[in-house]
Design a protein around this nucleic acid. Sequence first.
DNA 1: GCTTAGCACTCAACGACATCGAGTGCTAAC
DNA 2: GTTAGCACTCGATGTCGTTGAGTGCTAAGC
Lengths: 341, 341
Amino acid sequence: MKLDDRKWMILQAIIDDYIMTAVPVGSRTLSRKEGMGVSPATIRNEMSDLEELGYLDQPHTSAGRIPSMKAYRLYVDQILRGSPLSQQETARIQTHLNQRTAQIEQVIRRAAQALSDMTQYTALVVAPQMHTMRIVRVQIVQVSPQSALLVVVTDAGLVKDSVIRIPEGMESDHLYSISQMLTEQLTGLTLQEMRQKFSEIFKNLKEHRRLLAGVLDAMEFRMAESETGEMVIDGGVNLLHYPEYADVEKARNFLSVLQAKDKLYPLLRKAGGVEFSIRIGPENDIPELSECSLVTATYKMQNDVHGTLGIIGPTRMNYGRVISVLDYISKAMSDLLSGEN
Amino acid sequence: MKLDDRKWMILQAIIDDYIMTAVPVGSRTLSRKEGMGVSPATIRNEMSDLEELGYLDQPHTSAGRIPSMKAYRLYVDQILRGSPLSQQETARIQTHLNQRTAQIEQVIRRAAQALSDMTQYTALVVAPQMHTMRIVRVQIVQVSPQSALLVVVTDAGLVKDSVIRIPEGMESDHLYSISQMLTEQLTGLTLQEMRQKFSEIFKNLKEHRRLLAGVLDAMEFRMAESETGEMVIDGGVNLLHYPEYADVEKARNFLSVLQAKDKLYPLLRKAGGVEFSIRIGPENDIPELSECSLVTATYKMQNDVHGTLGIIGPTRMNYGRVISVLDYISKAMSDLLSGEN
DNA sequence: GCTTAGCACTCAACGACATCGAGTGCTAAC
DNA sequence: GTTAGCACTCGATGTCGTTGAGTGCTAAGC
């Protein structure tokens, strides 16, 4: 099953060429290439072997060969760890990221922009999952007679806020003491655990039931939101530049999948944790994306909380480069998000 | 220049048909239609007249006619005020909007979803311009030793917040009194006027320069953001369903324009204020959108602050329906946003 | 025994060409 | 003023041969 050196070289050359051109590559083309000191005929023999081994596919009899999914898999496992980025490129990424990025939401959005800009594929970035974080502080700030801002700070340094309604006639001092109490009671709990605790709190503080119900409601809503909502997609249009999507039908399907964030989300989540994950073609479970590959990496915040960022592109994507870019940006994000906030 | 009844009826029939099918309509097709008691030949004569008057175009000699921009203009001016929506439809819109929509950002996002869902075109919604609003309250809430949440409440009921860094060792009480002072000083000012006032404040409170600089910075940033950033687009992919975008090139161009929000923004702004604005084809200034029409409406918040919502679709769009939907949703939004918050 | 030249074969892509049909404009009859 | 009839236009569609890149196989060469 192991490929000898020449087979491997030829396979690599085919993949490289196909990544560039998206056109099936034939023996002549290949033999003309630099450093390939053999005739087309020889290459044909080797290609024939490679096809039998399952590394090459032939769209139709009189066309060249294209790499199979198995070939990409091998290639990717071998190649992993792309060449480092040039000074220029890292600089370009930094200008993306360095634009006043205090809030996480912004960091995420900018990272997605940087990713799609640098790779010309479609970028996905998901925020860290909130329910693994622990509450550090809860504060309710009145902003009008009928509304207040609920601020929740977590141990990952994340600040989430939502406007809630409050019963008319609520006094500011009151809100303050309730905030104190909530902070005291909820500190150290995950948002999940918080839910149980709340029923307890409800019993003790009947008179503020309406207010507390609003608070709980808002927190739950935020959690639910972060199950699917906190994902940024950038550069969906990029893929329309590639011949794979010369057909509007396909283009539309692809873009529709991007729209359905709730389907995409589990895919990204699943890859979380490990440093890099590469899923080629049908390896990802969404049928509409069976002609795409998904490459993901992980970024970290404080206290082991982590999020995922990734690239979707055609299976023939430039894996080396994508990995380099993901590597760099994930590190940059981790630095931005854990050092401070 | 005024069209007699029959010409007008024929023109209308042509437009209706073309809106449905996107195929040039010929005299035979037209004469077969219900209520059109004349022969193809007669219609041909009328069409010939209409073409001379500039209401019809002919893509090529042996094809049917398509309505010109001038025809749409006439049609739209005549038709304005579409038929009201059915019970079912309004219900559908309400399920979109009624999903726990406290914050403006959410109302806007949901409205965009509702718009694109109901029309199957592309929806745009821009937030009200911040710099016309007046400050009602400023509050700084500490969330960690080095950071705080800056909350600004405006007279339109809008709440904007941003995380800012604060000098280490800042006391909570201090932040409170500074908040008080800022509220006092800035109340009633527009965000624009606020800037001048700030230099004054700077002089009086030298010791808190760093903090105040952070506050000013964040407020300015939010303002700048709201110049272009606060626009939501939904259903960009919808247009790919129409034959106008069967060509990927065109589809890509269109989607790219949507990406460039800063170009789109002035277009929407320009239409603000008036109840409805319809710009057909080249009437809007973006060349890439010369085959599209833009229909916009206005929604209101408290104190004369208003935002814009609109639909982009092919010139042959179903104007009647679009206007009905815009009308309904803009009113619903106004209700949601001015009644409360 | 591997490499390569030669050759017959395959097949998508492309262009030329005929056909088809929806649609037009014009004229003459109603 | 309306309509039937007719010749004409022209994009769309389909057929068919041609082209050329590519293959597999065989036999000669190193």
